[in-house]
């Protein structure tokens, strides 16, 4: 009887499982194998060669891309947490409860703009004739328009904008679950506001922060659009280099090796924060 029930269960799971195996696991294995193949002229030679990884270590434009990606991603993650935490705090504890849901909804509404459109919108705001330059000149803070678009500043701004919204949501969810008794108890025991935050609230919200930070890291380091539209071509990130390999040279082995390196970085980030991660609670 149990065996029959199990069989039925597999019947229901099978379509989703087969889809994931055929269109996710198999491509992934192919990509792994491809990263060990080589291109000779234009023909692909399967094998077990580490040549692509060696090339990555030797060629400056390749390992530079890894560094640029890491620098941008870490900057974005830290900045986003620092900006989102106070915002989530204010919405959770300062905004009157009846306006809370509305405030949160408004704070994350532009999260749902398509990322191509969002990056274009930032290009618009940051361009030489754009809103920011016009505003700064009207205020007399600058005499000449400053170059903001097509720089790393623009890439980071575009990313931070997106991830502040994401992190506000995850940190808010964490803060609102905390019983007010923790704060009351800390205050009763003589802690001031800062001590209460430092020793009670912060440790309790750490899982939410780390989960959000991990998501930020994963989504940021794998994104092609934001640096491509906003960053210009002065420096390339790993996804941009992958796309160059695909487009200009059809070098699938090298692109695969770069993708594997990207996965490796994500895995390292995962191991680094696994202790606090609560991925099942997203």
């Amino acid at each position: 009887m149990i065996a029959r029930d199990t069989l039925k269960g597999w019947g229901f799971v099978a379509p989703a499982l087969l889809w994931t195996l055929a269109f996710f696991v198999v491509p992934f294995v192919v990509m792994g194998a491809m990263s060990l193949a080589t291109l000779e002229g234009r023909t692909l030679v399967w094998g077990f060669s580490l040549a692509n990884y060696a090339e990555l270590a030797q060629k400056a434009y390749l390992w530079r891309a890894v560094l640029v990606s890491l620098e941008i991603t870490l900057t974005v993650t830290v900045l986003s947490i620092l900006l989102a935490y106070p915002l989530a705090w204010i919405i959770a504890f300062r905004v009157p409860p009846r306006w809370q849901r509305l405030a949160l909804l408004l704070a994350i509404l532009p999260f749902w703009t398509s990322y191509v459109v969002r990056s274009y919108a930032w290009l618009l705001v940051l361009s030489r004739e754009g809103v920011v330059n016009k505003a700064l000149m009207t205020l007399g803070l600058i005499a000449e328009p400053i170059t903001l678009a097509n720089t790393r500043i623009a890439t980071v701004t575009g990313f931070v904008h997106f991830f502040v919204m994401l992190l506000t949501l995850t940190i808010f969810a964490n803060l609102i679950q905390l019983s007010p008794n923790y704060r009351r108890a800390a205050m009763d025991l003589g802690a001031n506001a800062f001590q209460t935050f430092r020793h009670v609230i912060l440790p309790l919200t750490l899982p939410g922060i780390v989960t959000g930070a991990f998501l930020t890291f994963v989504l940021c380091i794998g994104d092609y659009i934001t640096p491509q539209i906003l960053g210009g071509n002065n420096e390339l990130t790993v996804p941009q280099v992958i796309m160059v390999q695909l487009g200009r040279r059809a070098d699938f082995p090298l692109a695969s090796a770069l993708a594997i390196v990207l996965m490796g970085l994500v895995t390292l980030a995962y191991l680094g924060c696994a202790r606090w991660l609560r991925l099942d609670r997203i």
């Binding site: 994931t20 996710f24 192919v30 491809m34 994963v218 794998g222 992958i242 695909l246 996965m263």
Partner: peptide
Amino acid sequence: HVMPGSALVRGLLIAPLTVSYLIVGLGLLM
């Protein structure tokens, strides 16, 4: 339904969430 190895199956079904879209697309393209 009672299924042995259901934790593994759940893990496998969730797995694509942790991989960036670029890598999913690249693998399928190849």
